[in-house]
């Protein structure tokens, strides 16, 4: 939310390095036994794949690296995972949940 840089839409590409801004909190809720994303006046319930992606959004890993790690882990085709990851991160970026 800082300065003028925020005022353009971020387009997610394989080289983007997504991160959760400090005010977005990925938190495990032990009472409900599930993960939540806490955002300004919003609570999201990420699905298992989204949780795996969000956990890796540390501002260091690129989208490509995240996708390739997940492709290995789930033994799935990289290109497919990459496409899905980009589209999910674009949606999250548009909702203000991640920065890149």
């Amino acid at each position: 939310m800082s300065g003028e840089g925020h005022r353009t839409r971020v387009i997610i590409v394989p080289a983007s390095k997504p991160a959760l801004p400090p005010h977005i909190k990925l938190r495990h809720d032990p009472g409900r036994g599930r993960w939540h994303v806490l955002a300004p006046e919003r609570v999201f319930e990420p699905d298992p794949i989204a949780i795996e992606i969000l956990k890796r959004c540390d501002g260091v890993n690129s989208v490509e690296e995240i996708a390739s790690e997940l492709a290995k882990e789930y033994n799935a085709p990289l290109q497919e995972i990459l496409t899905d990851t980009i589209s999910m991160l674009q949606e999250l970026s548009d909702k203000g949940v991640i920065r890149a």
Binding site: G31, R32, R34, H36, V37, R42, V43, F44, E45, P46, D47, A50, M88, E91, L92, V97
Partner: peptide, 26 residues
């Protein structure tokens, strides 16, 4: 990713634990 709007689950079933139907916001 689904938004919890504003509560993820409300069950008429007997309560197992309070948070099974806890409010999201105060």
């Amino acid at each position: 990713m689904n938004e919890v709007a504003p509560m993820e689950q409300f069950s008429e079933k007997p309560l197992v634990e309070a948070c099974a139907r806890a409010p999201v916001g105060l």
